[in-house]
Design a protein around this nucleic acid. Structure first.
Lengths: 369, 369
DNA sequence: TGGGATTTGTTTATTGGTTGAATTATTTGG
DNA sequence: CCAAATAATTCAACCAATAAACAAATCCCA
């Protein structure tokens, strides 16, 4: 049961069940009727009706004319997420580009803006001002579509503390940048690591497995760990630093000060120079992850995705040799499906997930106007 | 909010709040009054009173005469967990001993039985029959104390599937042993890995940190990963196999078929032969864990605990060199406090945690007699 | 063409559980 | 000995889900 620390009142019951209904619709391939929701959740039809009424009134669900027909009986009214309800603003800042996108409640990307420019040449405040301008464009486009943005999330290639402070972003040359103070969009802003958000982006696609490791190979190597459908951020939010897992204890010196870090053998340059070496090193590090966390699926993203075919066999060889349970259950290796947009998409998804996981708070929000 | 998949009805509210009250008492250093519980949980005094009445009627809480006095006003009635309510039966089978213990709801060990004998010489059924006899002794002792056992949990040094099937226990020479079929105690039985349960045992002591790694160094090396107060078992329940994390890719061959596994450099024999080598290897593997999971605390248990002073510096040296965030936040290394009983204690704790986390189910149990 | 069968969705009385305010109980302090 | 203070209980009100009856809309078959 895992009782959390907070008391439950009747209104929490309603909040929970609102979320349950909304998510049932979201996870449904077709357009479920109230009766279908009732059957799949275990709530009464009467209760579902009442909850659906609230969700429709709050512009989270819409009724669609006729759902696909079946046998006899009164025809059902199909329910679906509204495309013109709340939306999420996804932002990304990386070494050579800035990006912003607007995703609606259904998960569709409605607008997408990218600016290519080397961010390493700018001080953080200037880079964030650029990003703010891009975000303003996106906000205007969302407004024109009748989408009310529920919040924004920003993907950063670095270590981020819980309050949005970027402690280090080596490839941007940032340290201790207080992003929320420098980037005021008039929206709640979440800041998180790029690999973490990309992992969440992957999670949302194709209803992938709820437990996997997403590995992003850019200049540095980061990983997002998704356990049971939830991102694991670690005690201080700094999990997933697979790039500095030791592969060869006395190997090449790394810019972090240690020797033999994965990054030195499977970073972007290393992959280009010697894919076999990179695959072996990745295989060794990933074996450690699987031995520790018992993950059944590993998703290669970022710069690894286009190189997937060249890396696959080399990684698999090490996995099958070094993973203790390889004989009992296989480890599936696959390429990311979202490409370069993964982190930005994941960022926007975080925002809309917030609404989908807690519609009651959204419905009770202090209304503008 | 993380809405789970199940609907919430009013009775769930009560179940949740019962658990909340019980845990508030359990986590309280002193003996809280109803009013104190009301203040710390946010529930009304009226509600707390009603919940406490149920818990007292169900023999989970008792009223103690006078709580420590303060200023004016009607004196409070102190509440505490009952020592004669439900209890947990903790069991352990290991290479050279069998053990059983009875722990009451307050967490106190009420009875403890150990039999020393080499279990590798026996077929699994015979070993489990021995254990059953020990368990029967413990059950009798519990009954004499008026403790009704809520269940049993068994710690095994091997990989355990969700249904209690022991897939492999190399040091016992077991494979595919269906423990629940061979060990019928007339109680619900949980089977889990020894390191996992030992980690839970450590968690319960001294209100330790809710996120840490417990490393158990016996003949093999296992680890229990506790994240936010919950044991992380992995997708299939096989997490924590740190013994087969690669430390030296081309190093000593391991019985698992790979080369350079940690077990070959930091197993019991290796520690005895060369503590410095063991510490370095442990440090390398633990650095990988911290880089991946961002854990702030590592607890060394099992055979490592007595060697802690000899190992500490060597491990720390590698950690500070190889953990990326070592400069931002320290990693604390400490020895386990529970000694050889950790796994058995953890097993019993699992049972009583079950009651503390969901008292409503316990109160609604089909009553004997 | 029309009436049952069938399924969807809504209405209504009931129930379970928390809340808030008033009430009772028991102490300290002046 | 009475007022102030704190603890715990009682009781009417409220909120949300339930169960069961009812209304709506279609299919199917005679």
């Amino acid at each position: 049961m895992n009782a959390s620390r907070s008391p439950v009142r009747q209104s929490s019951v309603r909040a929970h069940n609102l979320a349950l209904v909304l998510q049932t619709v979201a996870n449904s391939a077709d357009r479920p009727s109230r009766a279908a929701i009732s059957a799949s959740t275990g709530l009464t039809r009467a209760t579902v009706s009442a909850l659906v009424d609230d969700l429709i009134a709050g512009h989270l669900l819409t009724e669609l004319d006729p759902a696909p027909r079946t046998g006899a009986g009164r025809p059902a009214a199909g329910l679906a997420l509204t495309p013109d309800g709340p939306g999420g603003l996804g932002l990304e800042i990386n070494v050579d580009y800035l990006a912003a996108c607007v995703v609606d409640l259904t998960g569709a990307v409605r607008h997408r803006f990218v600016t290519r420019a080397d961010q390493r040449l700018l001080p953080p405040a200037a880079a964030l001002a650029e990003l703010g301008a891009l975000a303003a464009q996106a906000q205007a486009a969302a407004g024109a579509d009748g989408i009310e943005l529920a919040g924004a999330a920003l993907a950063v290639p670095g270590l981020v503390a819980a309050d949005g402070l970027v402690r280090v972003a080596p490839n941007l040359g940032w340290s201790d940048v207080d992003v929320p103070a420098l980037l005021n969009l008039g929206l709640p802003l979440t800041v998180d690591n790029e690999a973490n958000l990309a992992a969440l982006g992957e999670l949302r696609t194709d209803g992938g497995p709820p437990t996997f490791l997403y590995v992003s190979g850019e200049i540095g190597i980061g990983a997002g760990i998704v356990l049971d459908g939830e991102l694991y951020r670690g005690g201080r939010g700094w999990s997933g630093e697979i790039g500095h897992v030791t592969v060869y204890p006395d190997g090449r010196p790394c810019r972090c000060g240690a020797n033999g870090c994965l990054e030195q053998y499977a970073g972007q340059e290393a992959v280009a120079a010697d894919p076999d070496l990179a695959a072996a090193a990745l295989g060794i590090a990933l074996s450690a992850v699987v031995n520790l966390l018992d993950l059944g699926v590993i998703v290669l993203g970022g710069g690894y995705a286009p190189e997937f075919d060249r890396l696959r066999d080399g990684i698999d060889a090490e996995l099958s040799r070094r993973v203790l349970t390889a004989g009992l259950a296989p480890v599936t290796l696959r390429a990311a499906t979202l490409g370069a947009d993964a982190a930005m998409r994941g960022a926007a998804d975080v925002v809309i997930s917030g609404v989908r996981d807690d519609p009651a708070s959204w419905l009770a929000r202090p209304q503008a106007v």
